[in-house]
């Protein structure tokens, strides 16, 4: 029983990371039709930004509010990089999706290489507030606290993004744009501003995932974002390509399947099961990739 509880909570923690990366991907894809390969780099930048800030930024550190400040710094850097990339490199290629995807591919290679060039290819130990290392007993299982931090953050982000989409004018524009981009422009709305916004939001979530992933894994390395990105892509496809709630459900599904199969079958089987899950979903509903944002 305690194993099941531990696996479930750990799976949900992993799902939280997937959701943070995948929600931004699906917002960007849904609104702009761009598959953002640079998203993994945003994650890496967030992780390294937090790590750097905890050592160098005045007031920041690896405990308490100092750590919160370090994370805020990492997220801010990720957000700024994402917004700048949209403005400088994606926007000039407006509506040219293939080229936009190619540019994000180039960015994913170049940005990760730059991080590697600057801080080396080897993993760095990540600053972790001490309480995240302790465990809490849940139904007889000793669950590390960082799992709760991951899950809590993802839930807050999910609620915030749903509220944003539901109650703000930008949210309205994004929901409408996902459905029919050209009709939004035909109503006199400059939909490109929403593009920059979703890139910034996606960059912020990915950077947050980078910081949280650093806590979860205990260390950071330049390639981390890319390996997480592939599973985030799978989550996005299973979740329906452009639906936030769909993405959340798919993230939970993928996180749990992966944890349980890796534990009960063999290491690596979980990863394979996720791919099989993707194939099954696509075969069952090839056109079922709905485009409703809710």
């Amino acid at each position: 029983m305690s194993t099941v509880v531990l696996l479930t909570i750990t799976g949900l923690g992993l799902a939280a990371l997937y959701f943070l990366v995948a929600s931004g991907l699906s917002l960007i894809f849904g609104l702009m039709g761009v598959l953002n390969f640079a998203h993994g780099a945003f994650l890496t930048i967030g992780a390294y930004g937090t790590w750097w800030a905890s050592d160098h930024l005045p007031g920041a550190g690896s405990t308490g509010w100092g750590f919160v400040l370090a994370v805020v710094f990492g997220v801010a850097v990720g957000t700024a990089v994402a917004a700048l990339i949209e403005l400088a490199l994606i926007r000039p290629l407006y509506e040219r999706h293939i080229e936009q995807v190619l540019v994000t591919v180039g960015l994913s290679l170049a940005l990760v290489a730059l991080v590697r060039a600057t801080w080396g290819a080897d993993p760095h130990p990540f600053p972790r507030p001490e309480w995240t290392q302790r465990t809490t007993s849940v139904l007889g299982a000793n669950v590390p606290n960082d799992r709760f931090l991951l899950i809590g953050s993802a839930v807050v982000v999910l609620v915030a993004v749903l509220a944003f989409l539901r109650f703000t004018r930008f949210g309205l524009i994004i929901r409408a744009g996902v459905e029919n981009r050209s009709m939004v422009t035909a109503l006199g709305i400059d939909v490109r501003r929403a593009f920059t916004l979703v890139f910034a939001i996606g960059g912020a979530f990915a950077a947050l995932a980078g910081a949280l992933g650093g806590i979860y894994l205990g260390s950071i390395s330049p390639g981390q974002g890319t390996s997480l990105l592939i599973f985030a892509f799978i989550v996005v496809v299973i979740g329906g390509m452009s639906s936030i709630t769909g993405t959340a459900v798919a993230a939970v599904l993928v996180g749990l399947v992966q944890q349980f199969a890796n534990y009960y079958a063999a290491s690596g089987v979980g990863d394979l099961s996720v791919v099989l899950l993707l194939a099954a979903v696509l075969l069952a509903r090839p056109s079922g990739l709905t485009a409703r944002l809710a």
Binding site: V105, G106, L107, L109, A110, A117
Partner: peptide
């Protein structure tokens, strides 16, 4: 030195320039 020490950084940048 830092950017020049990573072939992938240069190739990725070259690639973006070509696309543009």
């Amino acid at each position: 030195r830092v950017p020049l020490s990573e072939p992938l950084f240069l190739l990725g940048t070259l690639f973006i320039l070509v696309v543009f």
